[in-house]
Design a protein around this nucleic acid. Structure first.
Length: 492
RNA sequence: GGUCGGUUGGCCGAGUGGCUAGGCAGCGGUCUGCAAAACCGCGUACGGCGGUUCGAAUCCGCCACCGACCUCCA
């Protein structure tokens, strides 16, 4: 490919040419879910965004190690000493073991991700499986002088770190501003500074989940797991770290500080953040209680939903916006995505049956080049899809005889579209014709009816012809007349 | 209050200093017995006010509004 693959690096706030540390190999880490609730539409965005990146990097020929964690130790509910673990809270509510909660929602998450046709990550580490690594990283930070113990807990010394390094570089913050604007917390904390964050948190016997560590029995700090696990599986420096934009601060900022604090260097070359999905212009989030779970979306069972939306409609909807833009949810937008996706799939179904001509009136090479070019530009899927819809128009026009293409062009177009749509964009055709694959007897019956209808049409008995068509439609069989026969499909 | 981002036609959403995506909806036409689908054509949008420029929606400034982060959050 003549053009370089560029990605927007949050750290530099500009697009950079992607160059992996080791030629041919890419290490990428993406923050996964905290499994204390059902996956919602917000979870679909990073999952699909980084699945796309994963697929695209592989398409470019890289061998990719994609690590996405499962957070199964709840982060503390708040910053106060009496903070409660989210997973434990849920466990008490439902009278379950914490690990039962974790298991339930992890399974649910995997199911949803599979429905959205995201590829499983290469490694999916769990925080509880890496307590030793986290303790080890905390020890290193303390040894380097960037962590201190207080009352059995260990905190990151942000003010000291900020003297030696740029704390806030990722999120564009200045420590002074943060200190000025941090609100007063009730109850004096044992922290030296309000900006300090926990690396290890002491937990008393009322906590269901806690581990033994040099400082106390407790739980790892909120940001430690990603640092520990990314280092373990990708090394002290790796290529790409992704996640939702809401994680920039404090989570990712803390990760940078922890890496530098523990290993003396920044671990990540390219920080990538997907933007948020909004609902009525507001962020969709668990804490705001305005989220729609993926199961609700797929079933249509939610007061905000006018209908069910299939996983591929959701995937297509997300791909129609650039990953760095906010995307506003609405029934109208989802329905538009559904129809657009349907149009794309219908055209792809026509591809194998297109008749070749001895010359082409379309420029397949340009279409292909333009589409890949859009992908090279920071994964610009909306532009890529726009080009793809030019292809859709061509396919329909060739089908109708308004445009022509040689066999070579048709093959090229077909190969390209199949590769791009299914392998790279990760879409699947959900409406794979029941027409041919389904019930043979049903096919025969419908064909019989439509043949009778054609006889009625030939006899100009339009009342009968329309009756057959209308009643089939009521049953859910949509009939389309063609010049030399008919087509039909089962809807719903 | 601090930091960052956004404001594009009926809706969703790209993009660019001049050649003015795409999807959905709408309108007109072709095709059809009528439809449906498809195809062709149409609508000339970029928050407001200034400035830079031959030319800005695109660059700069100010203002307004919206949002995100500053506490866990994809």
């Amino acid at each position: 490919m003549s053009q370089d693959f560029t990605i927007y690096n949050t750290l530099s706030r500009k697009k950079e040419i992607f160059k992996p540390i080791t030629p041919g190999y890419v290490g990428m880490y993406v923050c996964g879910p905290t499994v204390y609730g059902e996956a919602h539409l917000g979870h679909a965005r990073p999952a699909i965004t980084f699945d796309l990146l994963f697929r695209y990097l592989r398409h470019l020929g890289y061998k990719v190690r994609y690590v996405r964690n499962i957070t199964d130790v709840g982060h503390l509910v708040d910053d106060a000493d009496e903070g409660e673990d989210k997973i434990e809270k849920k466990a008490r509510l439902e009278q379950l073991e914490p690990m039962e909660i974790v298991q339930q929602y992890t399974v649910g998450y995997h199911k949803n991700m599979e429905q959205l046709n995201t590829l499983p990550p290469s490694i999916e580490p769990r925080a509880t499986g890496h307590i030793m690594e986290q303790i080890d990283a905390v020890k290193r930070i303390v040894e380097q002088g960037y962590g201190y113990e207080a009352e059995g807990s260990v905190y990151f010394d942000v003010e000291k770190y900020a003297k030696d390094h740029d704390y806030g570089k990722l999120s564009g913050r200045k420590l002074e501003d943060m200190l000025e604007n941090t609100r007063e917390l009730e109850g004096q904390s044992e922290k030296k500074s309000s900006a300090d964050f926990a690396l290890w948190k002491k937990a008393d016997h009322t906590h269901l989940m806690r581990w033994e560590a040099p400082w106390s029995d407790g739980v790892p700090g909120w940001h430690m797991e990603c640092t520990a696990m990314s280092t373990k599986y990708l090394g002290e420096t790796f290529d790409i770290h992704g996640g939702g934009a809401d994680l920039k601060f404090p989570h990712h900022e803390a990760e940078i500080a922890q890496s530098v604090g523990a290993y003396g260097k920044e671990s990540v070359n390219y920080w990538m953040h997907n933007n948020l999905i909004t609902i009525n212009g507001q962020k969709m989030g668990k804490s705001l209680g305005n989220f729609i779970t993926l199961n609700e979306l797929f079933s249509g069972k939610h007061e905000l939903l006018e209908q069910a939306y299939s996983p591929m409609t959701v995937r297509f909807f997300i791909l129609q916006a650039h990953y760095r833009s906010t995307l506003d949810f609405s029934n109208e937008a989802l329905q538009a995505a559904q129809k657009g996706f349907d149009r794309l799939m219908k055209a792809i179904e026509l591809l194998p049956g297109l008749k070749a001509s001895d010359n082409s009136t379309i420029d397949v090479d340009k279409l292909i080049a333009d589409t890949w070019s859009a992908m090279q530009d920071d994964l610009n899927t909306p532009v890529a899809l726009a080009h793809l819809f030019d292809g859709v128009k061509w396919i329909n026009a060739i089908h109708d005889g308004h445009q022509k293409a040689t066999q070579a062009d048709l093959t090229k177009l077909s190969d390209f579209i199949n590769q791009f749509v299914f392998d790279v964009l990760g879409l699947t055709n959900e409406t794979e014709k029941e027409q041919s694959s389904g019930d043979d007897k049903l096919n025969e019956v419908i064909t019989l009816l439509l043949n009778l209808r054609n006889e009625a049409k030939a006899a100009k008995d339009y009342a009968t012809a329309d009756k057959i068509r209308d009643q089939l439609k009521e049953i859910g069989v949509v009939v389309k007349d063609k010049k030399d026969g008919f087509e039909w499909e089962i809807v719903e």
